[in-house]
Design a binder for these strands. Sequence first.
DNA 1: CAGTGAGCGAGCTTCCGCTTGACTT
Length: 798
Amino acid sequence: MAKNLVIVESPAKAKTIEKFLGSDYTVKSCFGHIRDLAKGDEAIDVKNNFTPSYEVSDDKKAIVAELKKLSKEAEIVWLASDEDREGEAISWHLSEVLKLDDAKTRRIVFHEITKPAIVKAIANPRGIDRNLVDAQQARRVLDRLVGFELSPVLWKKVKANLSAGRVQSVAVKLIVDREREINSFNTTSAFRVIARFNVGGKQMDAELAKRFETEAEAQAFLEKCTGAKFNISNLEVKPAEKTPAPPFTTSTLQQEASRKLGYGVSTTMSIAQKLYENGLITYMRTDSVNLSELAIGAAKKHITETFGERYSRPMRYTTKNDSAQEAHEAIRPTYFENVEIDGTNQEKRLYDLIYKRAIASQMAKAQIERTLATVSISGLPETLLATGEVLKFDGFLKVYLESTDEEGDDENSKMLPPLNKGEELLLKNMEASQRYTRPAARYTEASLVKKMEELGIGRPSTYAPTISTIQKRGYVIKEDREGKDRPFVVLTLEKEKINREEKSEKFGSEKSKLFPSDIGMLVTDFLSKHFEQIMDYGFTASVEEEFDKIASGQLVWNKMIEKFYGPFHIGVTKTSETAERQNAERLLGNDPESGLPVYVKVGRFGPFAQIGENSEEGKEKPRYASLRSGQLIETITLVEAMDLFKLPRVIGNFEGKDMKAAIGRFGPYIMHDSKFISIPKTDDVFAITSERAIELIESKRISDANKLIKIFAEDENVKILNGRWGPYISRGKDNFKIPKTQKADELKYSDVLEIIKAEGKSETSSKAANKTAPKKVAVKKTAAKKTAAKKSAAKKAK
DNA sequence: CAGTGAGCGAGCTTCCGCTTGACTT
């Protein structure tokens, strides 16, 4: 039996470390926290100094039993959980639950999984830091008290099954605040003037520094420019440089993967988890931009060998964020020699991103020459400005360029033609186009994470789960929105003549953005009204300061909790007893036909509109209609609400059966003969004619008839069908893509089985696959790469 | 894949952070 037992948090980490240490060491993982507050409301003894009662979580019982046994047999137990608040607490819980003897227990820490770091840690053990543990207890107890006292207030005053918490409630508030900011935004427009010159056969654009508020002013300016002469009055060439971004943290990885690859934050995290488990990248839940000495050296070697010495710029980054706990390295490839990897497409793409970001962070700055050309206009004080850039040395740009959240026109990195001071320029045309101001952008999952990180709310391990929670609770909806058209005016001066044109542009279209729901707004308003402190964006930051004081021994944890809890609990009791039920009812006006009042409110099945008063004796019952997705109680107008009552609408009769138009969960549809036919976006549900509806019904019949391409005698569950994106294979509930190299109608049953196997979903998902799989897996495994042998080997081998 | 929208008031819900696996013939 091994003399030493080392306990870390993550199994993948355990595997790596075991390789660094000799056979005298057994390395095991405890899978994070092994113990937590007991489940119910009684876990914290509020009257008795907030004494917490802990329980081993059900899913940890087995691992705890195993660790108990191993720790009894070991001579020394090394607690090697992360060096931060939570990690320290994990070590403490382990020592309590395993009943470890102080004499044979050592606490060690390291920030990176490299051999020198581990060896050094083993040589410098310490004891468990009780102050740090207390800081964690304070954090845990505070979160439980806040969450479990606020949520019941919501059940009572708003709606059942709702939740509130230090992190989630503020995350929702960010989205609600942003939505209101957008709704109250005052869009203005101004005319932007751009002159296009012809310089030696090349076009050069120059922009007027100021914009004109009205069309008349823009018109007047263009008139004054008619017949004017244009000269280069000043020419400036300035050197500039671009610096690479630091390597990824969890938050920046989520942002870039969202912008460059379009992944949601939980997708990104689960792909990263796979990469980590396969030993390809370092730990993916981190707030540190630090790279190990070893990594910096390896990057330098790789860069020098691949790009040359002058591309190398070893660099140590430091974290600016106050709330960072830096228990890990930044996210980087384990080996810089692994330029490409085996894996799924998603794994390859995410790895590529991580790889390039990390290597670029160790590369030279890019050298740029920026040219500013000022163009004067004869007889006018105004000047035009043309800017251009020439890349003198690419440096890190050879591999990676960070993207930004800002949408819209990027005018950079254009090259200017050769110019001389004093040179007269030939005007091709001058355009004054009307540009509208834009409100702040709605949050994406990733940009919300960025904001939360800035505010110190949440941790790398909780960003993705928190964002799922607020969507699951229905506070927030992630969706696309169609843009609307709006006209804009363009005035063009060309050949001494001014031409006016009215064009149209789309604005306000959104892709995968976060929108608040009515309930989200309702809850945010309720909490903001009664629990201002918790909803303050600075609340977490201020309690973090206190946790830091506890960690440094300047404050006693339950004293801190007491000070917070006293007033907080009074507020909870008071609100619970006296506050009015929060509802979002709004009177929109009166129905123009009946004169009855029109309301919008939240009901059991979501928000709806209502014509007429609630159940008055003898009176007619009110009429109801659900709000459509995207409509909010706060912003819906009477006209929009009245439209809701126009559906469902009988639009005609076909083959002896009524055709009804309505809007369902998946958008507008026609119901005929109890069949659904969806109405395309190009048609209007309110105006669609019976002729058009018949057309749609008939084309649906044709496409249904063509849906089946082939069915197989061998297994009638297996079919080739024609779908929205072309032919595909269907087997029971699973669908499979047909490779582009193969023709759908020529596929034989054996080909189909091949394809199903290659796509492989999970091997256990079906009996048919499982029967044939084991043999193949065994064969392919030997051929597969040395990357830690996993069950998924069959999937990866090609 | 929409017709609903109230109630005698049972017994339930809920937090944040740390880590993965996910019933089997």
